[in-house]
Design a binder for these strands. Structure first.
Length: 634
RNA sequence: GCUGGCGUAGCUCAGUCGGUAGAGCGACGCACUCGUAAUGCGUAGGUCACCGGUUCGAGCCCGGUCGCCAGCUCCA
C-alpha cells in the first residue's frame, strides 16, 4: 500500500504496518517525538494498523492536536492516580480544554489542596512506571455490563446514550476507561504537568444533577513551556483589576451593595474619558444622546417581552401596590421615545444613544469585581431603520467597533449568534434577520464564526471577542438585529407613498458594559494607562519647599492646557515622591528644583523611559498634548 | 442559585491547648529642606463579618445569615 507523507513523498509498506513502524522507518525528530498521527484526516494511536493507501501526518506535542492528546492522556493518568488513592471514586468525564484538561469525579469526601499534592505525586509515579496505552473495542452491551460491574454508573449512563455500537476503551497499567481516544504511546511521554485547582461541577452541566468534583490541570511538551504558562497566570494575578483598582484608587466594592461599583475620583475620570470618547465618535455619525426612565411599570416589561423572558434577571419593586421593574436594558424606553412622534422614511435611521444606569439581577455566584456586576452603564444605542438600510447601518457599526477597539490596541473576532431555543416571534422573521446579518458581514468582508443558539430572545446578534495583552478573550461589543420590538411596540414610519411601515431595530453597544470594559482595560494595560486615558497624566514634584510656588504655577499651566496634573507638595524627599508616582503609574513626573526655577524649565521623567532631561514647560506641554490628542498607545 | 474554601487594623498577614489581640506597610503628628524608586522618631487605628448557641470564659468550638474567592450554571 502507498503511504503519502506531508512533504509529498510516497512510500510503500505491506498491509497491516502500524503507524509507529512507519514513523520508525522515516526516522528523525518528528518521528521520535510523535504522540499520535492523523491518517486521512482522522486522529489515531501510533499502534494503529494501516490497511490501505493513506495520507499520514505524525503529530508531536508542538502541534495543537498533539498537545490536546497529550493533555487528554494526562487526564487519564490523573484519573488513574485518583483511583489508586480513592478506590471508591467514580469517574465521570475528563476532556482536554483550552490550556489544559480536567476530570470530574464522584468522591466520598471533598478534596483538599494536600490531596492534590498526593495525586500529583502518584501521577509522577505512574509516569515513571511508563505504562503503555492500549485500545480495545467491545460491543456496547458488553461495555455497559463491564462498567456496571465496576460500579462506574456515570460511564454506564454515557454508554446508554452513545450511538456507537462498538465503543472503545483504553487501558494503561491497571486503569481502564471508556474513551474515544486516541492516546499517547505511554505514560512516560508526559514531561511537564501541573494540577491547578479543585471545584464543583454539575454532572452534565445540569444544576439539577449531582455535583461532582472537578480537578483542573495542565500539561505541556516541556517544563519550559509549562513554566511560561504558569508565569502568565501569575502575571494575570498581578494584573487583577480588583487589586489594581484598589492600589490605583480607581474603584472599590462594599458588601452593602454586592455587584455594584463605587467609582473613586480617579476611576470616574477614566470612565468619563471613555464616555467622552464614545460621544466624540458617535455624534458625527448622527447619534442622538438621550436619557430615559430607569424604573417602569411591569406593563411595559410585558409589552417588551422581558417579563416573559428576562424576569429572573430583573430587580422588581413594589411601589405602593404598583409592580415596577428597574431597567436591565434601554430598548423598551427607546421604543417609547421613538413612538413619541411620527417619523418619515426620510428621517431614518434614528439613532438614540444612552449611557445611563441599568440593573440586572445576576446570580450571586456569578459576580466578579467590575467584570460581572449587577449595576452597570453601557455605551448603548438603538438604531431605528428601514429594511433597505440594514446592510449599510450594520457596516457603519462594524466600522465604529473598529475605530473604538483600535484606540486601545485590541484585536477582536466576530461571532454570529443565532436563534436560541427560547425565542420570541416568528421563525421566518428570525431567518430573515440572520440572513441580513450574514449579508452585511460578507459585504463588509469580515470573517466570523457561528455561535449557534446564543442569540438574544428578540433577535440574532454579532458578538465581538476582544483579545487583551495577555491573550485572553473577552466579550464586549454586541450588535443585535431585531424585528420583534418594532412589532410589539407597534412602531412605524410614514413611507414615500404615505403608508405606515414597520422599522427594524439594531441594538448595539461597543465597549459594552463600561464597568466591565474598564476592568478589562485595567488588566490589559496592567494599570499603566496610555496618557490619554490616565486619570492623572502628570505629577509635579518640587524638590524642596522653596520650589512649591513655582511647581504650583507649572501645575496650573498644565491644567490650562487641558492636562490632568497633580502637585505633590508634601514635605518628602524627591526619591520618595518619585517612587510613589511610579507605583501609581503616573505617565509623567515633572521634577522642579532650583535649576528649573532659575531657567523656567521642567525636568521630565517618564514612568517607563526614566529621566528625559530638562526642557521649557511649553515644549513639554506641546509634546504631551500631541500624545493625548493622537491617543498614543505608548 | 449550587459545590468547596475563606472572612482578625486601610492593605498583607500572625495569633499555640478556649483565658478579653499583634507585626510590617499605609495613615496621622513632629523633626529633617533634600536632585530621579522608600529619612528618622512618635501617635492613632479592631463590636476578630453579622446573629445566636456551648462554656466560668469564645477570634478560636457549634448552628444560621451576609459577603468574598475558585469553579459550575448563566452572561455584557
Amino acid at each position: 500500500m502507498a503511504i503519502r507523507l506531508p512533504d509529498g513523498t510516497v512510500r510503500e509498506y505491506p498491509q497491516g504496518t502500524t503507524v509507529r513502524e512507519v514513523a520508525q522507518d522515516i526516522g528523525g525528530r518528528t518521528a521520535l517525538e510523535a504522540l499520535v498521527a492523523r491518517v486521512n484526516g482522522r486522529l489515531v494511536d501510533l499502534f494503529y494498523r494501516l490497511e490501505e493507501d493513506a495520507e499520514i501526518e505524525l503529530l508531536t506535542p508542538a502541534t495543537d492536536a498533539g498537545l490536546e492528546v497529550l493533555r487528554h492522556s494526562t487526564a487519564h493518568v490523573m484519573a488513574q492516580a485518583v483511583k489508586r488513592l480513592f478506590p471508591e471514586a467514580r469517574l465521570a468525564i475528563g476532556p482536554p480544554i483550552e490550556n489544559g484538561f480536567y476530570y470530574d469525579f464522584d468522591l466520598p469526601r471533598a478534596l483538599t489542596p494536600e490531596d492534590l499534592e498526593r495525586i500529583a505525586a502518584e501521577m509522577r509515579r505512574i509516569i515513571s512506571e511508563d505504562y503503555a496505552f492500549s485500545r480495545q473495542e467491545m460491543d456496547r452491551e458488553q461495555a455497559i455490563q463491564f462498567f456496571r460491574d465496576r460500579g462506574e454508573s456515570y460511564k454506564v449512563e454515557i454508554l446508554e446514550e452513545l450511538d456507537d455500537p462498538r465503543p472503545s476503551i483504553y487501558q494503561q497499567g491497571e486503569f481502564i476507561d471508556l474513551c474515544r481516544g486516541p492516546h499517547i504511546p505511554s505514560t512516560g511521554r508526559i514531561k511537564a504537568f501541573a494540577l491547578r485547582s479543585v471545584a464543583g461541577a454539575y454532572w452534565r452541566g445540569d444544576s439539577h444533577r449531582p455535583m461532582l468534583q472537578r480537578i483542573y490541570g495542565t500539561a505541556f511538551a516541556t517544563q519550559e513551556e509549562l513554566d511560561r504558562y504558569l508565569e502568565l497566570l501569575a502575571e494575570a494575578e498581578r494584573r487583577d483589576h480588583r487589586r489594581l483598582g484598589r492600589e490605583l484608587d480607581l474603584f472599590s466594592f462594599r458588601e452593602e451593595a454586592p455587584g455594584f461599583v463605587f467609582w473613586h475620583p480617579k476611576g470616574y475620570q477614566l470612565y468619563r474619558t471613555l464616555v467622552d470618547f464614545s460621544r466624540e465618535l458617535q455624534e458625527p455619525r448622527g447619534y442622538l444622546e438621550v436619557s430615559t426612565p430607569w424604573i417602569y411599570r411591569t406593563t411595559l416589561w410585558e409589552t417588551s417581552g422581558h417579563w416573559q423572558h428576562y424576569k429572573d434577571n430583573m430587580f422588581l419593586i413594589d411601589a405602593d401596590g404598583d409592580r415596577m421593574g428597574v431597567k436591565p436594558m434601554n430598548c423598551p424606553g427607546h421604543c417609547l421615545l421613538y413612538s413619541q412622534k411620527v417619523h418619515s422614511y426620510r428621517d431614518l435611521p434614528v439613532k438614540f444613544a444612552e449611557y445611563g444606569p441599568l440593573a440586572r439581577f445576576e446570580a450571586s455566584g456569578t459576580l466578579h469585581g467590575a467584570l460581572r456586576v449587577r449595576g452597570m452603564h453601557q455605551d448603548d444605542a438603538h438604531i431605528f431603520l428601514r429594511e433597505d438600510q440594514i446592510e449599510e447601518q450594520i457596516r457603519e457599526v462594524l466600522e465604529l467597533v473598529d475605530a473604538i477597539y483600535s484606540a486601545f490596541g485590541m484585536a477582536y473576532t466576530i461571532k454570529l449568534s443565532t436563534r436560541p431555543d427560547e425565542y420570541m416571534g416568528e421563525l421566518e422573521t428570525w431567518e430573515k434577520a440572520e440572513a441580513a446579518l450574514v449579508r452585511a458581514l460578507e459585504a463588509a468582508g469580515r470573517e466570523y464564526t457561528v455561535n449557534p443558539k446564543d442569540g438574544a430572545f428578540y433577535g440574532p446578534k454579532l458578538d465581538f471577542d476582544v483579545t487583551d495583552a495577555l491573550g485572553r478573550k473577552w466579550q464586549c461589543a454586541t450588535v443585535q438585529l431585531d424585528f420583534q420590538f418594532p412589532e410589539r411596540f407597534d412602531l412605524y414610519y410614514v413611507d414615500r407613498d404615505g403608508s405606515h411601515k414597520r422599522p427594524v431595530m439594531i441594538h448595539r453597544a461597543i465597549m459594552g458594559t463600561l464597568e466591565r470594559f474598564i476592568g478589562i482595560l485595567v488588566e490589559h494595560f496592567a494599570g499603566a494607562f496610555p496618557v490619554w486615558l490616565a486619570p492623572v497624566q502628570v505629577r509635579v514634584l518640587p524638590i524642596g519647599s522653596d520650589h512649591v510656588a513655582y511647581a504650583a504655577r507649572v501645575r496650573a499651566e498644565l491644567a490650562n492646557a487641558g492636562v490632568r496634573a497633580e502637585l505633590d507638595d508634601r514635605n518628602e524627599k524627591i526619591g520618595y515622591k518619585i517612587r510613589e508616582a511610579q507605583v501609581q503609574k503616573v505617565p509623567y513626573m515633572l521634577v522642579v528644583g532650583g535649576k528649573e526655577v532659575e531657567a523656567a524649565t521642567v525636568a521630565v521623567r517618564h514612568r517607563r523611559a526614566g529621566d528625559q532631561g530638562s526642557m521649557p514647560l511649553a515644549t513639554f506641554i506641546e509634546r504631551i498634548r500631541h500624545e493625548i490628542d493622537s491617543r498614543s498607545l505608548d
